[in-house]
Write a protein that binds this DNA or RNA. Structure first.
Length: 264
DNA sequence: CTAGATGTTAAGGT
DNA sequence: CACCTTAACATCTA
């Protein structure tokens, strides 16, 4: 699930549901997902804290507490949140549950356990140490172009490199390149300024549309690649080409052989 | 039964 | 330093 749009949808939900809630207790279900602090220390630190604000940086969701610290949630491949009445037993694969004084709870469930939870006192420091580059949504076109300058790697890999810019994952990177009609293996540095402009605009429009659709694939326009990630499908854009799959940078990459011409 | 899946990191190497 | 590949993590589903 969670690339930038999914995390942004989670953030909005938390902003609506959980901001203002006061944590009465915390349960940790998967200790290994709690980073740099023991579960008991985290539990203690969060006790009686109020959630005062939410923010997102790349694929990270940040919940600010009234002592000024940030609870960082990273959703890995399969993590998600649920805000609900705090009565039934916690579901399987609950990483952490925040129990609120209101009788509600916010739970972070992650079946594959690739996600992470951390309690951060200095955001800038964290971003530097974790090698997280600027959020793609806040990049200006100039900054974007300069980040890609002299990058010899395929554009697909470059866009997904979280240390360069953060937020894009496998699915949305394919979508953006598809709509920009750029082959995923094109060297980043070889893109023309026209292509860079298109790419930049597509990053913004695809993210915007995905968030508008609550990051639900079924809600997205049929012309999007996202619901046609299957080898041999007819391209939903040009209706002429066929969708191909190729492993690039170790990730399954889908593209149209007609819209996205191979680089020389 | 097997392969692959929205992510990240480590390790080894050029 | 820039870059590449592979493996590992844990579980589910096609």
């Amino acid at each position: 699930m969670p690339e930038l749009p999914e995390v942004e949808v989670f953030r909005k939900e938390v902003a609506e549901d959980a901001v203002g809630e006061i944590i009465s207790s915390v349960s940790v279900g998967i200790p290994k997902m709690i980073k740099f602090i023991t579960p008991s220390a985290l539990t203690k630190a969060l006790q009686n804290q109020k959630i005062t604000a939410t923010s997102r940086f790349g694929k990270n969701l940040l919940l600010k507490t009234n002592n000024g610290l940030f609870l960082r949630l990273h959703f890995g491949m399969t993590g998600y949140l649920q805000y609900e009445k705090d009565d039934l037993p916690l579901p399987q694969y609950t990483c952490i549950a925040l129990h609120f004084k209101s009788g509600k709870r916010l739970i972070f469930v992650d079946p594959r356990k690739f996600g992470a939870v951390q309690y951060i006192d200095n955001l800038d420091d964290f971003l530097v140490k974790a090698h997280i580059g600027p959020d793609v949504e806040t990049l200006t076109q100039k900054e974007f172009a300069s980040l890609l300058k002299d990058r010899k790697r395929p554009i697909k890999i470059t866009l997904m490199d979280q240390s360069l810019m953060s937020g894009l994952g496998n699915l949305y990177t394919d979508e953006i390149l598809f709509q920009a009609r750029i082959h995923p293996e094109t060297a980043a540095e070889s893109l023309s300024s026209k292509e860079l402009t298109t790419l930049y605009k597509k990053i913004r429009s695809v993210i915007k549309e995905a968030i508008k659709d609550h990051a639900e694939r079924e809600q997205m326009p049929v012309r999007y690649l996202i619901n046609h990630r299957k080898q041999g499908e007819t391209c939903p854009q040009c209706k002429r080409g066929k969708i191909h799959m190729k492993t690039i940078g170790g990730r399954s990459t889908y593209f149209c052989d007609f819209c996205q011409k191979e680089p020389n």
